[in-house]
């Protein structure tokens, strides 16, 4: 029990109701803003609250969401991976190129892409744990290398061809003629991530390493192995995002991942995961990914000029993030 000898403000049991409401808003502040934004859109536009639009939003959130799972795991470790978006690009480009130019069977090409993503994660993990090079530096370098290789492969051109048609069902397929396949993929992946984090020894160890890696190591946890595993997992997920993106746009380009780096990291941070590691809820990352997509969706529906869209989206993000301050400001 906390006593005045220690720090009385830390114990949740001793706080009144207002404090708890403020804590909730502080921790889940972006959800409050999300709900307000959705309510506003439902009232001011005709088409926001339709099944079609909701599925459109969820489909658009799929790739950000899937890559954000990997980013979330790595941020839980207290690291950061800036190379995920360019991993997505390269894996997608390699897969498309194998299918179009080498006429590889689609399944094999997809497996090659996933393998490549895993390999990139492995290299990141090994460099960070074995050579003890800071994660930001390592993955920033990796980002540059991967973009460069993607550029060498594409020569600045779009890769396209009928061979890609085969995997388009990943983006366009539906279940029972109603629910888009990517939406199902998104929820299945998040359900799996939830179980892995909360119900497996691996998940428990990820939290432990992020919380205090020295103490985790002294508790017999092989910190390096957990880190490498996590980078491999995140790399594979990013590559899967690349597969989904090629299926979605039907082409592959050397710049197709660059639009994801910022939203993916924003989703994780907006979801409340601590950049110092050890704290974060995967469900919040999913909600944040959907929120980010809804911001753009709503502005198009509202007919806001594209010249002002960024200002509005920046403002919404700042408001959502600044609610976080309520938690740390003592009243």
């Amino acid at each position: 029990m906390a006593t005045p000898d220690q720090t009385p403000l830390l114990s949740g049991q001793q706080q009144g109701t207002p404090r708890r409401i403020i804590n909730f808003i502080g921790e889940q502040g972006f959800i409050v803003i999300f709900i307000l934004w959705a309510l506003y859109l439902s009232v001011s536009t005709n088409n926001f609250a339709t099944a079609q639009n909701v599925f459109t939003i969820l489909r658009q959130a799929t790739i950000i969401g899937i890559v954000a799972i990997g980013a979330h795991f790595i941020i839980l470790l207290g690291d950061i991976d800036l190379s995920l978006a360019s991993n997505l690009t390269l894996s997608g480009v390699v897969m498309a190129s194998l299918m179009v130019n080498q006429e590889l069977p689609p399944l094999l090409a997809v497996l090659c892409a996933l393998g490549l993503g895993a390999l990139i994660g492995l290299v990141n993990g090994m460099v960070i744990t074995r050579l003890k090079i800071n994660a930001i530096i390592t993955t920033l370098g990796m980002l540059s290398i991967l973009e460069g290789i993607a550029f060498i492969i594409t020569q600045g051109k779009t890769i396209f061809g009928d061979a890609i048609e085969v995997i388009k069902f990943l983006s366009r397929g539906t279940l029972l003629d109603a629910i888009p396949l990517p939406v199902i993929v998104l929820f299945v992946f998040y359900a799996a991530a939830f179980v892995v984090l909360g119900r497996t020894t691996y998940g428990a160890r990820v939290f432990a390493v992020g919380n205090n890696s020295k103490a985790a190591w002294l508790s017999g946890i092989n910190v390096d192995r957990i880190k490498v595993l996590t980078y491999v997992l995140a790399g594979t997920l990013a590559a899967f995002g690349g597969v989904m993106q090629v299926a979605r746009q039907g082409t592959a380009t050397g710049g197709m991942g660059s639009d994801f780096l910022f939203p993916v990291l924003t989703a994780v941070v907006l979801g409340g995961a601590s950049l110092t590691g050890g704290r974060g809820k995967i469900v919040n990352t999913l909600i944040a990914a959907v929120f980010l997509t809804t911001i753009t969706n709503g502005m198009v529906l509202l007919g806001i000029s594209i010249y002002t869209q960024r200002v509005v989206s920046g403002a919404i993000l700042i408001i959502a993030l600044s609610l976080d301050r309520l938690r740390t400001v003592r009243v």
């Binding site: 005709n46 489909r59 380009t253 639009d259 753009t296 969706n297 198009v300």
Partner: peptide
């Protein structure tokens, strides 16, 4: 391509 796709999907809703 991704921007064109996302924008048009949403525009078609409206």
């Amino acid at each position: 391509t991704e921007n064109g796709l996302t924008s048009m999907e949403t525009a078609l809703v409206e």
